[in-house]
Amino acid sequence: MNPADARPERIENDAYSAAPGIDDPQAVLSVLEADQIVAAKQRMHFGRRKLSRGVSILLWGMRVYVVIMMVLLVISAIRGIHSAP
């Protein structure tokens, strides 16, 4: 079982029976995860991952694929327009 599924949220124990508001920070904090608070997200980032050679090749391959395909698409669309009656 995912640990998140097992964690009882405070509100289920009727800790807060009224909807949380900005004037009641504890109620807001009880239903959100720390990582969901805007101030925390602005200061906390997932760092850069080190790209292995395989991942770099994959990303470059995909980029080249898109550029070539876009050129072919434009050619095909122009042909299509010119051949339309």
């Binding site: 640990p3 807001v28 904090l29 720390a34 101030a39």
Partner: peptide, 19 residues
Amino acid sequence: TTEAAADSPLASDLAGLLT
């Protein structure tokens, strides 16, 4: 993480920064 903000060691700091 799946930790509630209220249970976090940052709770008191975050409480003052809510939007």
